[in-house]
Amino acid sequence: MTHEIIKIEGMTKVYDTGEIQVAALNSIDLTIHKGEFISIMGASGSGKSTLMNILGCLDRPTSGHYYLEGVDVMEKSDNELSAVRNKKIGFVFQSFNLISRTSALKNVELPMIYGKIGAEERKERALELLKNVGLADRSHHMPNELSGGQKQRVAIARALANKPQIILADEPTGNLDSQSSVEIMEIFTQLNRKEGNTVIIVTHERDIAEFTDRIITFKDGNIIRDEYTREVGQC
């Protein structure tokens, strides 16, 4: 018996560019269970990033329903969506998106600041998270003093700051060399296997997708394939 953490019904997203209307998502239905390790594949413009933005509550669909833990997110206010992003979702981006001129530690503390967690607890947890990704000795380094792989590990630590259930990673290995890519994917695998996080990764690289249990392929705003790479659902 698995718990449906994300359920999407008939979701459509249309970008109105004035003269022409582009349907980025075309009436999508998708269900994701708690603890799944999923990759979303597709060429650029296939709608995978649009889906990611909507899943991350950064954007709203034109029509359709998005139930996050059984609650329809479309009915929530902007401030409530901010709280959802803060508490329930951890973002990891292709270009790391660390705040420059701000130490690794402060970057990791950021979601906790918006989550109104006290300064001491914040610092303690941020240090622990950095230790978990192997960067305990880099906590006071600025982003420009870190390598790509290190930056992405800081970003993962930051994504985990408020203990979200869902991790959304948009091309997390896109700017990394192959060795760092493997290291980052191993961290995601660990998070999924040991911590039970639901991990959703957008990628266009087949070998990155191979790390995950389920590969969903997009084309022109439609899901054209949804396959399991190994036996799952035994939990």
Binding site: D78, S82, L110, Y114, N162
Partner: peptide, 16 residues
């Protein structure tokens, strides 16, 4: 601008 986007994605509200 980008920093603002990052902050919002991490849960910063409009008022923050």
């Amino acid at each position: 601008t980008r920093e603002i986007g990052i902050r919002k994605s991490l849960g910063a509200r409009t008022n923050d």
